[in-house]
Amino acid sequence: MTAPTPPVPHGPAADLAGVWRLVSFETLAPDGGPRPGPLGESPVGLLFYSDTGHVAVHMMPAAGPPEYLSYAGTWHREGDRVVHTLTVAARPDWLNSVQIRLLELDGNRLTLTGGALSTAEKRVLVWERVGRDAP
């Protein structure tokens, strides 16, 4: 099976292209208060958005038992949302799913908010641009 050809990001979508380092990963409690996400207090991770519409995410705890969350596929931007279509995933139940995240881009800081992949919880991930894409 051939993966679908992603739309090429342009305009505001091109602002996301590059490499991002995970700054924080929190779960929002029912009262709206933040608590550590599934990877603990200080997870590490990288998010890659290509300018050709591909995405890859890799995250794991900084310490403690090894657990690895990852997926890849295609992405495109719809206003204040980014849409990930998963074609490769660490878990079979994530394959071919569409993940929609609200996004807030403030310079080199990207905040993505949306539902968890496996539960009904809401997650907030903060990323910081790294590499040659950072000013």
Rank of each mutant, 00 (worst) to 15 (best):
M1Q: 11
T2P: 15
T5W: 05
P6L: 03
P7A: 12
P9Y: 11
H10T: 14
H10C: 08
G11H: 06
P12V: 03
P12I: 02
P12L: 04
A13P: 09
A14V: 11
A14M: 12
A14W: 06
G18M: 06
W20E: 02
R21A: 14
L22V: 03
L22N: 04
E26L: 09
E26N: 10
E26P: 00
E26H: 12
L28R: 12
L28A: 06
A29G: 06
A29K: 14
P30D: 08
D31K: 00
D31I: 02
G32I: 06
G33M: 12
G33N: 13
P34R: 07
P36I: 01
P36K: 00
P36F: 07
P36C: 01
G37L: 05
G37W: 03
P38D: 14
P38F: 10
G40W: 12
V44Q: 10
L46Y: 11
L46A: 10
L47M: 11
L47Y: 02
F48G: 06
S50A: 09
T52S: 13
G53R: 04
H54R: 15
V55K: 05
A56G: 05
A56L: 09
V57S: 08
V57Q: 07
V57T: 04
H58K: 00
M59V: 09
M59H: 04
M60H: 13
P61H: 04
A63C: 04
A63Y: 11
G64M: 10
G64E: 07
P65T: 15
P66D: 12
P66V: 12
E67L: 12
Y68N: 11
Y68W: 13
Y68H: 12
L69E: 12
L69P: 00
S70C: 14
S70K: 01
S70R: 05
A72S: 14
A72W: 01
G73M: 07
W75L: 04
H76D: 08
H76P: 01
E78S: 10
E78Y: 03
G79W: 01
D80M: 09
D80P: 08
R81Q: 15
V83I: 13
V83K: 02
H84A: 07
T85C: 08
T85A: 13
T85W: 05
L86D: 03
A89S: 14
A90L: 01
R91V: 13
D93G: 03
D93A: 11
W94L: 11
W94I: 01
L95I: 09
N96W: 15
S97F: 02
S97V: 10
Q99W: 06
I100L: 06
I100H: 08
I100P: 02
R101C: 07
L102I: 00
L102S: 15
L102W: 11
L103G: 00
L103P: 04
L105D: 05
N108M: 07
R109V: 15
L112G: 00
T113C: 06
T113Q: 08
G114N: 03
G114A: 01
G115A: 14
L117E: 14
A120C: 10
A120V: 12
A120F: 07
K122R: 15
K122H: 08
R123H: 14
V124R: 15
V124Q: 08
V124K: 06
V124A: 01
L125A: 15
L125V: 09
L125K: 02
V126I: 05
W127Y: 04
R129H: 02
R129N: 05
G131E: 08
G131A: 05
A134E: 13
A134S: 14
P135F: 07
